[in-house]
C-alpha cells in the first residue's frame, strides 16, 4: 500500500501566548526567540495514522512538506518515526501561499508521485487554522475525502473511517484512493526510536522545484492565492483579574464564593 502524508512545519503552537508578537506594518508574525519550528501537531498524528496503516497492511509511507529552509532535524522526524521517504517542495515560488495555492502544489506533487492509495493530512494546520488543504487536494485529484478522522482501517480497497462529530462519531467508507484528514482523537504519535533517528540521519530528502511537478510559478505560493491577507492584528485583552486571597486555601475558596455572590455571578 502506498501512503502519502502532507506535513507542515509551524512555530510551536503551544508556546506561551505572551511570546506571540506580530509586525503589524508588514502583516507578519515575528519569530519569537526560543520558539522553535515543530511539525504541526495534527500532521504528526497523520504520520502516526500512516504508520499504523503500514504496520497492518505493509507498504510505503512518503512524506511531503512544502516550505523554504525547513530545518532538516525537524522535517526528518517522520522518517525517524518510520516513514520511508521525504519530499520537500522547496523554492521561493512556493512561498507565501494560502490554502488554495498550497493544496494545488501538494496535489501536483502527489500526481507526480503517481501511485498512491491513501493521502493523509492534518485536520488543520496549527498556525493559520484553516482546515482547507486536505479537502482541496482531494478536489484537485478528484478523489473522495473524509475529514477529521479518529480511526482508519483499510479492507479490500476501501477505507473505513471513524469521523469525529460534536456529539460522537460516524463511520464513513470511501473507495481508494482517498484523502483523509486526521484529528487528535486518533491518539498519541509514536516516539522516534534511536534506530529510526540514526536511519533518518542517513536519508536525504528529495527536493522538488515547480518545474519538477510541472507547474507554472504563477499558480503557486503568493501569486496563486485565492485569498488576500488584508490585515493581521492582535486583539487587546483587558486582563484585570481580581485575585482572592485568604489565610489558607479553604478561606480563599470561601471568599471567592462570597465574592461571586456579591458580584451577582451566582
Amino acid at each position: 500500500m502506498n501512503i502519502i502524508v502532507c506535513v507542515k512545519l509551524i512555530p510551536d503552537p503551544e508556546a506561551p501566548p505572551a511570546s506571540f508578537k506580530i509586525d503589524t506594518a508588514a502583516n507578519k508574525v515575528i519569530p519569537a526567540a526560543g520558539v522553535s519550528l515543530v511539525i504541526s501537531p495534527f500532521d504528526e498524528q497523520a504520520v502516526e495514522a500512516a504508520l499504523r496503516l503500514k504496520d497492518v497492511n505493509g507498504g510505503k509511507v512518503t512524506v511531503i512538506s512544502l516550505g523554504m529552509g525547513l530545518p532538516r532535524d525537524v522535517v526528518k522526524k517522520p522518517l525517524a518515526m518510520g516513514a520511508d521517504e521525504l519530499i520537500i517542495l522547496e523554492d521561493p515560488a512556493f512561498e507565501g501561499g494560502d490554502s488554495w495555492s498550497t493544496a494545488y502544489a501538494l496535489a501536483m506533487a502527489i500526481k507526480k508521485i503517481g501511485e498512491f492509495d491513501v493521502v493523509l493530512c492534518g485536520r488543520q494546520a496549527g498556525d493559520w487554522d484553516a482546515g482547507q488543504v486536505g479537502s482541496g487536494i482531494a478536489e484537485f485529484l478528484g478523489i473522495p475525502g473524509i475529514t477529521i478522522a479518529k480511526k482508519i482501517e483499510v479492507n479490500n480497497g476501501t477505507a473505513v473511517v471513524e469521523r469525529v462529530l460534536s456529539d460522537g462519531y460516524e463511520v464513513i467508507e470511501a473507495v481508494l484512493p482517498a484523502l483523509i484528514t486526521v484529528s487528535n482523537e486518533l491518539g498519541e504519535p509514536r516516539f522516534a526510536a534511536l534506530k529510526g533517528i540514526m536511519a533518518a540521519a542517513k536519508k536525504q530528502p528529495v527536493i522538488w522545484k515547480p518545474a519538477d511537478i510541472g507547474v507554472e510559478p504563477s499558480k503557486l505560493g503568493a501569486a496563486g492565492r485565492a485569498t488576500k491577507l488584508v490585515k493581521l492584528f492582535q486583539p487587546v485583552r483587558e486582563g484585570k483579574c481580581e485575585i482572592i486571597e485568604g489565610e489558607n486555601p479553604a478561606e480563599a475558596a470561601e471568599k471567592l464564593a462570597l465574592r461571586l455572590r456579591e458580584a451577582k455571578v451566582i
Binding site: V230, L232, F233, Q234
Partner: peptide, 14 residues
C-alpha cells in the same frame, strides 16, 4: 478570523 490558535486575528478578502 482568529489565527495562530487565537493569538492573532486576520482579515481576509477574496
Amino acid at each position: 478570523r482568529p489565527v495562530y490558535g487565537g493569538n492573532a486575528q486576520a482579515i481576509f478578502a477574496v
